[in-house]
Amino acid sequence: MEAAIASTASALRCSPNPTLARQQRGARAVGLVVSQPQSRGVRCERSTHRVSRAYAAVGTKGGDAGSVGMKKKRLAVFVSGGGSNFRAIHGAALRGELNANVVALVTDKPGCGGAEHARDSGIPVVVFPNSKSAPEGVSTDELLNTLRELRVDFILLAGYLKLIPVELVQAYPRSILNIHPSLLPAFGGKGYYGLKVHKAVIASGARYSGPTVHFVDEHYDTGRTLAQRVVPVLANDTPEQLATRVLHEEHQVYVDAVTALCDDRIVWREDGVPLIRSRTSPDKYT
Protein backbone atom coordinates (compact mmCIF):
# COMPACT_ATOMS: atom_id res chain seq x y z
CA MET A 1 0.00 0.00 0.00
CA GLU A 2 1.43 3.34 -0.99
CA ALA A 3 -0.02 5.36 1.87
CA ALA A 4 0.68 4.04 5.33
CA ILE A 5 -2.20 4.98 7.60
CA ALA A 6 -1.70 4.89 11.35
CA SER A 7 -4.37 5.60 13.94
CA THR A 8 -5.39 4.64 17.43
CA ALA A 9 -8.79 3.40 18.48
CA SER A 10 -10.89 6.21 19.84
CA ALA A 11 -14.24 6.81 21.42
CA LEU A 12 -17.00 8.47 19.42
CA ARG A 13 -19.11 11.33 20.69
CA CYS A 14 -22.47 11.40 18.94
CA SER A 15 -25.13 14.08 18.97
CA PRO A 16 -28.29 14.59 16.90
CA ASN A 17 -27.80 16.34 13.57
CA PRO A 18 -30.43 19.13 13.58
CA THR A 19 -30.08 19.90 9.86
CA LEU A 20 -30.63 16.29 8.88
CA ALA A 21 -33.52 15.99 11.32
CA ARG A 22 -35.32 18.94 9.69
CA GLN A 23 -34.78 17.41 6.23
CA GLN A 24 -36.17 14.08 7.40
CA ARG A 25 -39.32 15.68 8.84
CA GLY A 26 -39.98 17.53 5.58
CA ALA A 27 -39.30 14.48 3.46
CA ARG A 28 -41.59 12.23 5.49
CA ALA A 29 -44.43 14.63 4.75
CA VAL A 30 -44.19 13.64 1.07
CA GLY A 31 -43.30 9.98 1.61
CA LEU A 32 -39.53 10.28 1.15
CA VAL A 33 -36.53 9.18 3.19
CA VAL A 34 -33.44 11.38 3.45
CA SER A 35 -30.26 9.62 2.40
CA GLN A 36 -27.48 9.74 4.95
CA PRO A 37 -24.00 8.31 5.37
CA GLN A 38 -23.18 5.63 7.89
CA SER A 39 -23.75 7.96 10.84
CA ARG A 40 -27.48 7.04 10.66
CA GLY A 41 -28.72 10.54 11.42
CA VAL A 42 -26.19 11.49 14.08
CA ARG A 43 -23.06 13.58 13.90
CA CYS A 44 -20.08 11.64 15.26
CA GLU A 45 -16.61 12.98 15.94
CA ARG A 46 -13.58 11.17 17.25
CA SER A 47 -12.54 12.43 20.66
CA THR A 48 -8.89 11.48 20.12
CA HIS A 49 -6.91 10.24 17.17
CA ARG A 50 -3.37 10.03 15.91
CA VAL A 51 -2.68 9.90 12.19
CA SER A 52 0.32 9.65 9.93
CA ARG A 53 1.65 12.80 8.28
CA ALA A 54 0.33 11.70 4.87
CA TYR A 55 -3.16 11.19 6.30
CA ALA A 56 -3.09 14.47 8.22
CA ALA A 57 -2.09 16.43 5.13
CA VAL A 58 -5.05 15.10 3.17
CA GLY A 59 -7.52 15.39 6.02
CA THR A 60 -6.76 19.03 6.75
CA LYS A 61 -6.24 20.39 3.26
CA GLY A 62 -8.94 22.99 2.81
CA GLY A 63 -10.29 22.31 6.30
CA ASP A 64 -12.97 19.92 7.49
CA ALA A 65 -15.74 22.43 8.09
CA GLY A 66 -18.14 22.87 5.16
CA SER A 67 -18.98 26.30 3.79
CA VAL A 68 -22.61 25.96 4.91
CA GLY A 69 -21.79 24.79 8.43
CA MET A 70 -21.85 21.08 7.54
CA LYS A 71 -18.91 18.83 8.19
CA LYS A 72 -17.10 18.10 4.95
CA LYS A 73 -17.60 14.59 3.63
CA ARG A 74 -14.60 12.37 2.99
CA LEU A 75 -14.44 10.74 -0.44
CA ALA A 76 -12.54 7.79 -1.90
CA VAL A 77 -12.44 7.73 -5.70
CA PHE A 78 -11.80 4.54 -7.69
CA VAL A 79 -10.23 4.79 -11.17
CA SER A 80 -8.65 2.54 -13.79
CA GLY A 81 -7.61 5.10 -16.40
CA GLY A 82 -6.97 8.78 -16.98
CA GLY A 83 -9.44 9.79 -14.32
CA SER A 84 -11.03 12.84 -15.97
CA ASN A 85 -14.14 12.51 -13.79
CA PHE A 86 -11.90 12.16 -10.73
CA ARG A 87 -10.11 15.36 -11.75
CA ALA A 88 -13.45 17.15 -12.19
CA ILE A 89 -14.58 16.09 -8.71
CA HIS A 90 -11.24 16.90 -7.11
CA GLY A 91 -11.19 20.30 -8.81
CA ALA A 92 -14.70 21.10 -7.57
CA ALA A 93 -13.64 20.19 -4.04
CA LEU A 94 -10.54 22.38 -4.22
CA ARG A 95 -12.62 25.31 -5.49
CA GLY A 96 -15.05 24.93 -2.62
CA GLU A 97 -17.93 23.98 -4.92
CA LEU A 98 -18.18 20.55 -3.32
CA ASN A 99 -18.59 20.08 0.42
CA ALA A 100 -16.00 17.32 0.55
CA ASN A 101 -12.34 16.33 0.47
CA VAL A 102 -10.91 13.52 -1.64
CA VAL A 103 -8.89 11.52 0.90
CA ALA A 104 -7.94 8.44 -1.16
CA LEU A 105 -7.54 7.23 -4.73
CA VAL A 106 -8.05 3.50 -5.28
CA THR A 107 -6.90 1.90 -8.52
CA ASP A 108 -6.20 -1.47 -10.09
CA LYS A 109 -3.65 0.18 -12.41
CA PRO A 110 -1.03 2.01 -10.33
CA GLY A 111 0.53 3.61 -13.41
CA CYS A 112 -2.69 5.13 -14.78
CA GLY A 113 -3.21 8.85 -15.26
CA GLY A 114 -5.69 9.09 -12.42
CA ALA A 115 -3.16 7.64 -9.97
CA GLU A 116 -0.47 10.03 -11.20
CA HIS A 117 -2.79 13.00 -10.67
CA ALA A 118 -3.53 11.80 -7.14
CA ARG A 119 0.17 11.49 -6.30
CA ASP A 120 0.86 14.93 -7.72
CA SER A 121 -1.96 16.28 -5.54
CA GLY A 122 -0.78 14.60 -2.35
CA ILE A 123 -3.70 12.14 -2.25
CA PRO A 124 -2.83 8.64 -0.96
CA VAL A 125 -3.02 5.95 -3.65
CA VAL A 126 -4.20 2.47 -2.72
CA VAL A 127 -3.77 -0.38 -5.21
CA PHE A 128 -6.68 -2.83 -5.31
CA PRO A 129 -7.06 -5.70 -5.90
CA ASN A 130 -3.93 -7.76 -5.48
CA SER A 131 -3.07 -9.41 -8.81
CA LYS A 132 -0.16 -10.68 -10.89
CA SER A 133 0.05 -7.31 -12.61
CA ALA A 134 -0.25 -5.45 -9.29
CA PRO A 135 1.34 -7.63 -6.58
CA GLU A 136 1.45 -4.62 -4.26
CA GLY A 137 -2.35 -4.56 -4.23
CA VAL A 138 -4.32 -5.04 -1.04
CA SER A 139 -7.03 -7.56 -0.19
CA THR A 140 -10.69 -6.66 0.26
CA ASP A 141 -10.34 -6.76 4.05
CA GLU A 142 -7.26 -4.54 3.92
CA LEU A 143 -9.06 -2.09 1.65
CA LEU A 144 -12.03 -1.92 4.02
CA ASN A 145 -9.72 -1.32 6.97
CA THR A 146 -7.96 1.48 5.10
CA LEU A 147 -11.23 3.18 4.14
CA ARG A 148 -12.36 2.98 7.76
CA GLU A 149 -9.07 4.41 8.99
CA LEU A 150 -9.54 7.30 6.55
CA ARG A 151 -13.13 7.73 7.78
CA VAL A 152 -14.45 7.62 4.22
CA ASP A 153 -18.12 8.63 3.93
CA PHE A 154 -18.71 7.95 0.24
CA ILE A 155 -17.06 5.96 -2.55
CA LEU A 156 -17.12 7.26 -6.13
CA LEU A 157 -16.33 5.03 -9.10
CA ALA A 158 -14.88 7.08 -11.95
CA GLY A 159 -13.90 4.73 -14.73
CA TYR A 160 -13.05 1.83 -12.41
CA LEU A 161 -13.48 -1.36 -14.44
CA LYS A 162 -13.42 -4.03 -11.73
CA LEU A 163 -16.57 -5.36 -10.10
CA ILE A 164 -16.92 -3.99 -6.57
CA PRO A 165 -16.77 -6.78 -3.95
CA VAL A 166 -20.02 -7.52 -2.17
CA GLU A 167 -18.29 -6.87 1.17
CA LEU A 168 -17.65 -3.28 0.12
CA VAL A 169 -21.21 -2.78 -1.10
CA GLN A 170 -22.56 -4.08 2.20
CA ALA A 171 -20.18 -1.91 4.23
CA TYR A 172 -21.27 1.25 2.34
CA PRO A 173 -25.02 0.91 1.68
CA ARG A 174 -26.42 3.71 -0.49
CA SER A 175 -22.99 5.32 -0.30
CA ILE A 176 -21.27 4.20 -3.53
CA LEU A 177 -21.85 6.01 -6.83
CA ASN A 178 -20.76 5.14 -10.36
CA ILE A 179 -20.95 7.00 -13.65
CA HIS A 180 -21.63 5.14 -16.90
CA PRO A 181 -21.47 6.65 -20.42
CA SER A 182 -24.93 5.56 -21.59
CA LEU A 183 -28.55 6.04 -20.59
CA LEU A 184 -28.92 2.99 -18.39
CA PRO A 185 -30.36 0.41 -18.42
CA ALA A 186 -29.46 0.51 -22.13
CA PHE A 187 -25.90 -0.44 -23.11
CA GLY A 188 -24.78 -1.38 -19.62
CA GLY A 189 -23.37 -4.44 -17.92
CA LYS A 190 -20.16 -6.43 -18.12
CA GLY A 191 -18.07 -5.55 -21.16
CA TYR A 192 -19.76 -2.20 -21.81
CA TYR A 193 -17.15 0.47 -21.14
CA GLY A 194 -15.29 3.20 -23.00
CA LEU A 195 -15.67 3.31 -26.78
CA LYS A 196 -17.44 -0.06 -26.75
CA VAL A 197 -20.49 1.69 -25.33
CA HIS A 198 -20.54 4.43 -27.96
CA LYS A 199 -19.98 1.98 -30.83
CA ALA A 200 -22.95 -0.06 -29.62
CA VAL A 201 -25.14 3.04 -29.29
CA ILE A 202 -24.39 4.18 -32.85
CA ALA A 203 -24.79 0.66 -34.29
CA SER A 204 -28.21 0.32 -32.64
CA GLY A 205 -29.59 3.42 -34.33
CA ALA A 206 -30.42 5.05 -31.01
CA ARG A 207 -31.13 8.77 -31.38
CA TYR A 208 -30.05 9.69 -27.87
CA SER A 209 -27.34 8.71 -25.43
CA GLY A 210 -25.77 10.33 -22.38
CA PRO A 211 -24.26 9.60 -18.97
CA THR A 212 -25.97 7.97 -16.00
CA VAL A 213 -25.00 8.40 -12.35
CA HIS A 214 -26.26 5.47 -10.29
CA PHE A 215 -25.85 3.84 -6.92
CA VAL A 216 -23.76 0.67 -6.92
CA ASP A 217 -25.00 -2.79 -6.04
CA GLU A 218 -23.38 -6.23 -6.41
CA HIS A 219 -23.63 -6.24 -10.22
CA TYR A 220 -22.40 -4.16 -13.15
CA ASP A 221 -24.56 -1.08 -13.85
CA THR A 222 -27.77 -2.33 -12.22
CA GLY A 223 -28.00 -0.03 -9.19
CA ARG A 224 -30.67 2.64 -8.84
CA THR A 225 -30.34 5.60 -11.22
CA LEU A 226 -29.72 8.96 -9.54
CA ALA A 227 -29.14 11.36 -12.46
CA GLN A 228 -28.87 11.39 -16.25
CA ARG A 229 -28.07 13.84 -19.04
CA VAL A 230 -29.36 13.43 -22.60
CA VAL A 231 -26.93 13.78 -25.52
CA PRO A 232 -28.28 13.59 -29.11
CA VAL A 233 -26.65 11.06 -31.41
CA LEU A 234 -25.91 12.82 -34.68
CA ALA A 235 -26.39 11.19 -38.07
CA ASN A 236 -22.69 11.08 -38.92
CA ASP A 237 -21.29 10.56 -35.42
CA THR A 238 -18.19 8.48 -34.88
CA PRO A 239 -17.76 6.71 -31.53
CA GLU A 240 -14.99 9.18 -30.68
CA GLN A 241 -17.16 12.22 -31.42
CA LEU A 242 -20.06 10.89 -29.39
CA ALA A 243 -17.70 9.96 -26.54
CA THR A 244 -16.35 13.52 -26.42
CA ARG A 245 -19.81 15.06 -26.06
CA VAL A 246 -20.96 12.49 -23.50
CA LEU A 247 -17.78 12.99 -21.46
CA HIS A 248 -18.42 16.73 -21.32
CA GLU A 249 -21.81 16.01 -19.74
CA GLU A 250 -20.30 13.40 -17.42
CA HIS A 251 -18.05 15.98 -15.79
CA GLN A 252 -21.05 18.18 -15.02
CA VAL A 253 -23.67 15.65 -13.97
CA TYR A 254 -21.29 13.69 -11.74
CA VAL A 255 -20.15 16.79 -9.86
CA ASP A 256 -23.80 17.87 -9.48
CA ALA A 257 -24.82 14.45 -8.15
CA VAL A 258 -21.88 14.22 -5.74
CA THR A 259 -22.60 17.75 -4.54
CA ALA A 260 -26.17 16.72 -3.69
CA LEU A 261 -24.90 13.59 -1.96
CA CYS A 262 -22.46 15.57 0.18
CA ASP A 263 -25.14 18.17 0.98
CA ASP A 264 -27.49 15.41 2.26
CA ARG A 265 -29.97 16.27 -0.50
CA ILE A 266 -30.59 12.71 -1.69
CA VAL A 267 -34.01 11.38 -0.71
CA TRP A 268 -35.48 7.95 -1.35
CA ARG A 269 -39.03 7.28 -2.47
CA GLU A 270 -40.88 4.47 -0.76
CA ASP A 271 -40.33 2.32 -3.86
CA GLY A 272 -36.54 2.69 -3.50
CA VAL A 273 -35.95 5.31 -6.19
CA PRO A 274 -33.43 8.03 -5.22
CA LEU A 275 -34.22 11.67 -5.97
CA ILE A 276 -32.23 14.88 -5.65
CA ARG A 277 -33.75 17.66 -3.57
CA SER A 278 -33.36 21.09 -5.15
CA ARG A 279 -30.91 23.33 -3.32
CA THR A 280 -33.00 26.46 -3.93
CA SER A 281 -36.49 24.92 -3.76
CA PRO A 282 -36.58 22.27 -1.00
CA ASP A 283 -40.02 21.05 -2.11
CA LYS A 284 -38.79 20.16 -5.61
CA TYR A 285 -36.99 16.98 -6.61
CA THR A 286 -35.29 15.69 -9.75
Results as ranks from 00 to 15, higher is better:
Leu150Arg: 15
Val201Thr: 03
Ile176Cys: 02
Arg151Cys: 12
His214Leu: 05
Val201His: 05
Leu184Phe: 02
Val197Gly: 00
Thr146Gln: 12
Ser209Leu: 06
Ala171Leu: 11
Pro185Arg: 10
Phe215Trp: 06
Asp153Ala: 13
His180Tyr: 07
His219Ser: 03
Ser209Val: 02
Leu150Trp: 09
Asp217Asn: 12
Ala206Thr: 05
Leu147Met: 12
Arg229Gly: 02
Lys162Thr: 01
Gly194Ser: 12
Arg174Ile: 02
Pro181Leu: 02
Thr222Arg: 07
Val216Phe: 06
Ser209Tyr: 05
Val166Met: 02
Val197Phe: 00
Leu144Pro: 01
Gly194Asn: 10
Pro181Asn: 08
Ile202Gly: 08
Arg148Thr: 13
Ala186Glu: 13
Ala200Cys: 05
Val216Thr: 12
Lys196Pro: 01
Leu163Ala: 10
Gly194Pro: 03
Tyr208Ile: 13
Arg207Leu: 14
Leu177Asn: 13
Thr225Phe: 04
Arg224Tyr: 03
Arg207Pro: 03
Thr212Ser: 14
Glu218Ile: 04
Val213Leu: 11
Glu218Ala: 15
Val169Lys: 00
Lys199Asp: 03
Ile179Gln: 11
Gly194Asp: 02
Ser204Trp: 04
Asp153His: 15
Phe215Cys: 06
Gly188Ala: 09
Ala158Ile: 09
Asp217Phe: 00
Arg229Ile: 05
Asp153Met: 09
Ile155Leu: 15
Tyr208Asn: 10
Leu177Lys: 12
Pro165Gln: 11
Ala206Arg: 04
Lys196Ala: 05
Tyr160Pro: 03
Gly210Leu: 11
Gly191Cys: 02
Ser209Gln: 03
Val213Lys: 10
Ala203Gln: 13
Thr212Ile: 10
Ile179Pro: 04
Pro165Ala: 10
Asp217Pro: 01
Leu195Phe: 00
Arg229Tyr: 09
Asp221Tyr: 03
Ile176Lys: 01
Leu161Val: 09
Pro211Phe: 09
Leu163Asn: 06
Ser175His: 07
Val216Tyr: 06
Tyr208His: 13
Lys199Pro: 00
